[in-house]
């Protein structure tokens, strides 16, 4: 039942997303084609491009054609390079997903144990020093944006030390710096959440009973507390993945990563509207799909949480 409701919500969101990305070109004030091609472009070229986008048809026809195209995987042709946009996405999307996916996994692997450790150490206001250091340290780390981490990592590890490649995607070691740049802030954020979550679980009655059973502390933390933080970890993981996909735009730009993000920035600065429109749509669709999957997984794993939500 929940799954059905959730699927309907997904469909509605998808319709809104398609409409929004369709409307994007129409919302641009003035003549987007003229703006893209420049004042000196010959009139025939402008008219040809306009026809290409179907901008001369009535709006409902255009929308219908747009939906048909998207369903067929056809996103038009780049103004600048004349590549099919569908091909650009097919070439570049895997690299973006690989980067964001690797960063998500790395973040969870580091942040959940870190937050748990901090939670255990600061239970009931113990170790005020650890608490202060942890919260202000992670607080500062979340403020620094990904692109500054990227630049700092390049300066230190590529330029000063010469250990790792500063740009491009070539072999496993080219992943290290981009993944790090993408993860540091996320680790700090997730570790904070994991600490709060751990503190909450440690105060739960079942932990007291587990202590009354005189279980070894490690067993209490790993077997009793950890599984109960997984629901929230999964929720955070989903948000994290979508957040990191967006964050990867800046990281891809700095590292010249051959993903969607770099190409999106390029297309926006060049007013290559078909490309920009399609890539923003794809990002939006990824977000919707990831959120859908996470919600469905959650309802399977923890039936109670979805009842609460709806």
């Amino acid at each position: 039942m929940f799954a059905l409701r959730r699927l309907i919500r997904f469909a509605v969101s998808m319709v809104v997303l398609i409409t929004a990305s369709f409307a994007m070109i129409h919302l641009i004030p003035g003549d987007p084609i003229r703006a893209a091609l420049g004042m000196n472009a010959p009139l025939e070229l402008v008219n040809q491009r306009r026809a290409e986008l179907g901008l001369d048809d009535p709006i409902p026809m255009q929308l219908l054609a747009y939906v048909q195209q998207i369903l067929g995987g056809d996103f038009g042709t780049s103004f600048m390079t004349r590549e099919p946009v569908g091909q650009i996405i097919a070439d570049r999307l895997p690299h973006t997903l690989a980067l964001a996916g690797a960063a998500t996994i790395f973040t969870l692997i580091v942040a959940v144990p870190l937050g748990m450790w901090a939670g255990i150490r600061t239970e009931n206001g113990r170790n005020r020093g650890t608490e202060l250091g942890f919260t202000s340290g992670t607080g500062a780390l979340t403020v620094v944006p990904e692109f500054l981490y990227s630049i700092a990592l390049i300066v230190v590890f590529s330029i000063a030390l010469g250990w790792l490649p500063p740009a491009g995607r070539d072999g496993l070691d080219s992943y290290i710096l981009p993944v790090l740049a993408l993860s540091i802030g996320a680790i700090a954020m997730v570790a904070r959440l994991a600490r709060v979550e751990t503190l909450r679980e440690l105060g739960a009655d079942y932990v007291r009973l587990a202590r009354a059973k005189r279980l070894p502390v490690l067993r209490i933390y790993l077997r009793h507390v950890l599984p109960n933080t997984l629901t929230s970890t999964l929720t955070v993981g989903g948000l994290l993945l979508t957040g990191l996909i967006a964050g990867s735009v800046l990281v891809e730009f700095v590292f010249a990563w051959p993903g969607l993000g770099g190409r999106m920035v390029e297309s926006i600065t060049q007013k290559d509207y078909p490309v920009a429109q399609a890539i923003i749509f794809v990002y939006g669709a990824i977000v919707l799909v990831v959120n859908l999957i996470v919600d469905l997984l959650l309802s399977k794993l923890d039936p109670k949480s979805t009842i609460k939500e709806t």
Binding site: A20, T242, A246
Partner: peptide
């Protein structure tokens, strides 16, 4: 639920 950066780009 939408990443802020995407909204900003749009």
């Amino acid at each position: 639920a939408f990443p802020a950066l995407l909204l900003a780009m749009f």
